[in-house]
Design a protein around this nucleic acid. Structure first.
Length: 549
RNA sequence: GCGCUCGUAGCUCAGUUGGAUAGAGCGUCUGACUACGAAUCAGAAGGUCGCAGGUUCGAGUCCUGCCGAGCGCGCCA
């Protein structure tokens, strides 16, 4: 496909040919990079340095031999520099050809057709006990963007949300709501532990909505009778709230998987049976243990407690077994960094079940440290003083929030200063990128053209600012592939900001709408290509590409 | 104590899996709108890449040891 042949791959390919020509050796990969220093050319390779030992010659000599064997019409100005780098420029004709290919690819530029084993990407997966917090927002932004990037890079991705609307947490939620509900009628509700109750404002909202629906009916029942209905009401309320927030943040899922279905389908019993057959479980002190320490974990883990109930391990293992049975080749879980102990033990269980060790892949997202005016904000759902994801979206907007979240690596802790985010929202880098897009849109409005109408690129030479912009555009497919392969989102914002910088500089130095017909056409092609890549890149982050702002 | 992850400009962060003189944004300072959008551009200042060794032609990147931070180490999830 033209959209992914990529100049870099062509360069790398012709270098391999040159090496074969000069030394009769077939290298399986040649590292090509874009030098920081523009005087070092458009591309550079260290192939001579890396292989000097193999050829038993000094690097500069090797470089000269490879350089003189290099025959590619799209490469010019080959030179050997420094300790043995080979630098070269791309011919203008090749650049013209590449822009044409980029424009022809349109929406598909930088993307690959789906191929390979399907991947299940699980993220967010918060239980319906309250609104999404700012920390969940980071998971949502990262997970959704990662899914988009992996899809663009040709991975078959299904997005899944795993949740549990039963269990202790939910009972606590139910009691918290019931207590508030009773208060609305000046009554008291018997609770097991009043200290443990959730205290957020949303508890009162749920109670009031319950009152609207049921009046005082639940108070006429015994708490034992009423509780299941109150719990169901409260979890449905919370789930609805979470779904609304996700939709607003443009975060989507292909499937919501309820833990309860594993009990209903007998999946957990089957899991225990399978584990018995594996020989990796044993009984001790009335509990059933998984011998996970034999499979890479620090210690053995309990699967069934001595009171007969399951630990979280059992349904979790059954869930991942289910993923495998559904035909996925890889399961990627996005988890909080406080679950760092989770992967080894789950992996141990999966290996016991006969699944490949690399089936489960976990991405740990570091905590979002909330700061407001330099002072740290404690996030505690029970204390009720948390800042919700919704509130954040209100304050800084969907675009800025999503962009800010994924701008830094998910692997590092992030300081989210709310005061700064609000105050400086006009100077958030997302506007810098969006502005480049809007600027280009404005040029086309003035030219009374649509970017899609630009298809012909007249041949000719390019100014330095134009070359720099073009080479940046052609880097996009590699950035997308690299981000997908490493499961990182933050390379995209970095790339987009660089691209925007290249464009703004080009724009400042060169007039697009000039008299000269060919020059004008060539520059419009650059604008259309840039607009295309900006739009695609922003869409991978779930951020709008505005025509005006 | 053991294990995992992380220490890069005043602040927030990049750094193309080992390459040439470590880069952006914010903040500070100086300039540029009678040509397509100044939410922009040009320039300046700002660094012992936590510290110390090691590996090699070459280390922010890989290895070891310290220092510092966060998180794990439940018959909680």
């Amino acid at each position: 496909m033209a959209s992914r042949s990529g100049i870099e791959e062509r360069v790398s390919g012709s270098l391999r040919e040159a090496v074969r020509e000069a030394y009769g050796v077939e290298l399986n990969g040649v590292h090509v990079e874009r030098p920081n220093e523009s005087t070092h050319g458009d591309f550079a390779t260290n192939v001579a340095l890396a292989n000097a030992k193999v050829f038993k010659r000094n690097p500069r000599e090797v470089a000269h031999n490879i350089a003189s064997a290099l025959k590619a019409p799209f490469i010019e100005n080959v030179e050997v520099a420094g300790p043995g780098f080979i630098n070269f420029r791309i011919s203008s004709a090749a650049l013209v050809e590449e822009v044409g290919a980029l424009l022809a690819a349109g929406d598909r530029y930088g993307k690959r057709e789906p191929a390979g084993a399907p991947i299940l990407l699980e993220y967010v997966s918060v239980n319906p006990t309250g609104p999404m917090t700012v920390a969940h927002g980071r998971h949502a932004a990262y997970g959704d963007s990662l899914a988009r990037i992996m899809e663009a890079a040709g991975r078959r991705v299904s997005r899944e949300y795993y949740f549990n609307d039963g269990g202790n947490q939910i009972r606590l939620l139910g009691e918290s709501v019931a207590a508030r509900y009773a208060e609305l009628f000046d009554r008291e509700w018997p609770v097991s532990d009043s200290e443990a109750l959730y205290r957020g404002e949303y508890i009162r909202e749920i109670a009031e909505d319950l009152k609207k629906r049921d009046g005082d009916r639940r108070l006429k029942e015994s708490p034992r009778e009423a509780m299941p209905e109150i719990m169901a009401f409260a979890t449905a309320w919370c789930m609805g709230d979470i779904e609304r927030t996700l939709a607003r943040a443009r975060v989507t899922f292909d499937n919501y998987f309820n833990e309860k279905s594993l009990y209903d389908s007998g999946g957990i019993e089957r899991l225990i049976e399978d584990l018995w057959e594996s020989g990796y479980v044993y009984e001790n002190e009335g509990a059933l243990w998984l011998a996970s320490s034999k499979l890479g974990d620090d210690k053995d883990r309990v699967l069934v407690k001595n009171d007969g109930s399951y630990t979280y391990m059992a349904p979790d293992l059954a869930y991942h077994q289910d993923k495998w049975n559904r035909g996925y080749g890889t399961a990627v879980n996005v988890l909080g960094a406080d679950h760092a102990g989770y992967p080894p033990r789950i992996r141990a269980g999966l290996v016991a079940l006969g699944l490949p060790e690399d089936f489960l892949d976990v991405e740990l997202v570091r905590l979002v440290k909330l700061v407001r005016g330099g002072e740290q904000v404690k996030v505690s759902k029970r204390a009720g003083n948390f800042v919700t994801f919704d509130e954040l979206l209100d304050e800084v907007g969907e675009d800025a929030a999503r962009y800010f979240y994924v701008r830094s690596s998910h692997r590092t802790e992030m300081n989210f200063d709310l005061a700064v985010a609000v105050q400086q929202s006009d100077e958030n880098p997302v506007y810098y990128v969006q502005y480049a897009h809007a600027r280009i849109a404005s040029i086309f409005r003035r030219a009374e053209l649509r970017p899609e109408d630009v298809t012909d690129v007249p041949p000719g030479d390019f100014a330095p600012e134009e070359r720099a912009l073009l080479l940046e555009l052609f880097d996009f497919p590699r950035v997308v592939e690299g981000a997908a392969a490493r499961r990182e989102v933050h390379p995209l914002p970095t790339y987009l900001e660089t691209l925007a910088t290249r464009f703004h500089r080009f724009y400042t130095v060169h007039q697009v709408l000039v008299e000269d017909e060919e020059l004008r056409q060539r520059r419009l092609a650059l604008c259309a290509a840039t607009k295309n890549v900006l739009r695609i890149g922003l869409s991978l982050l779930g951020v709008e590409a505005p025509e005006r702002m």
